[in-house]
Design a protein around this nucleic acid. Structure first.
Lengths: 210, 210
DNA sequence: TTGCATTAATCAATCGTTTGATTAATTTTG
DNA sequence: CAAAATTAATCAAACGATTGATTAATGCAA
């Protein structure tokens, strides 16, 4: 069946996404990935051509869904800039748990700035998400909702940096927050609300005229 | 001479620090490191025992200097909490350029949470730096300088997360800030002042009673 | 000469990939 | 429908290349 084939490819991609995010591209051997996925080693090359092709396929699977999520928000004319900001933070807080492995993998790959097609695509992808936030912030200034001397690029760096710091250093973050952020229940019950709440308060204090 | 030997070891460590930070532990082969350092491959094992030993030596060289930099600040009784916070941001902003490669390497290694001695040591090291910041923030609350409902762990995550985001994704950060943050001159002339200034304003807005 | 530093050569292990063969599924043909 | 032909999926085995590490020989200063 075609369905089984897609499911199997999807399963391989799921496993590979996790293993790559845990071990890095070079650290994750094709033997380990195929072993954990329960498929023969040759299947990786059969389906994805090469290890790099597999790596690329992981990202391509997500890129499309990533693209249009935030775009609607930015173009909404009915709500103010601060409301958009709040909704942006909500969306961004939700995605923390959902794409944990992928986020790790994404920024890990961006870290070592290789000069290949993949890195270029990923950078474009991330910059598109960032652009939406940029629009919201500029709109807020233009409307007089936000202070006019805010540092927009740094705000963006803060928003994503804080999230990445917590996700990418789970042991340190767990020690800081005093609960295990690797535990899915804890993420849902405590981490997500805490991040959202904090980031709203932080942005409120920095962006808004008081 | 003993001096030459130490210099050569130091040179190898410098090169290895850079190569590891660029390629990751698994991606950086001993042949590449020794080649870039201009020494025979066997010298790495001769000096450091193994690849992992070399990796460990990079961190051990820095750990000692890391340790006591911030401790004096925290114990200073003559200045207020907000002043300490400002000085902390100054110190933290300065170190951005100095230990660029090392910072990358450090958080890259923390990212893939291996369970070995090295990761434990690194975690302890980072947590010690974090503890000083924690003390300052608690002191600020106790003194009534800071709002009493601030989220201390998240503030710490923001401070380090923002810095790491910029350092670890240089291409994205350069696109955001509209100047090349890989250029040493730009780091000195623009990035460092901008980060310090922004972070002070951000913290002022969030921490202080208005 | 003695002891440390350095080298080229070599080691076993593992890497990503390819192969040829076999099985399962699908399509075509009579 | 049933048999034959074709395609797709899967496998164990092996490939050459590269890995980290070791060896034995050499260089060299004290």
């Amino acid at each position: 069946m075609d369905k089984d084939k897609i499911d199997k490819k999807d399963h391989i991609l799921d496993v590979a996404e996790r293993v790559f995010s845990e071990k890095g591209f070079d650290g994750a051997s094709t033997r380990l990935i195929s072993g954990e996925a329960g498929v023969n080693m040759a299947m990786l090359n059969y389906y994805f051509g090469s290890k790099e092709g597999l790596f690329l396929a992981i990202f391509q699977r997500k890129i499309s869904s990533f693209q249009n999520i935030l775009q609607n928000l930015g173009n909404d004319e009915t709500i103010g800039a601060w409301e958009k900001m709040e909704k942006y933070i909500e969306l961004y807080g939700e995605k923390i748990v959902n794409n944990n492995c992928f986020q790790r993998l994404l920024y890990q790959e961006m870290g070592m700035n290789r000069s290949n097609d993949l890195s270029d695509k990923l950078r474009d992808m991330l910059l598109k998400n960032v652009t939406e936030l940029d629009k919201i912030l500029n709109e807020g200034i233009a409307r007089g909702e936000f202070k006019k001397d805010i540092d927009i690029p740094m705000v963006i760096a803060t928003l994503y940096g804080t999230k990445n710091y917590i996700l990418n250093t789970p042991l340190i973050a767990s020690a800081l927050l005093r609960y295990d952020i690797q535990d899915e229940k804890m993420i849902e019950a405590r981490l997500k609300p805490q991040i959202k709440s904090f980031m709203k308060n932080l942005m409120k204090a920095y962006l808004l005229n008081n």
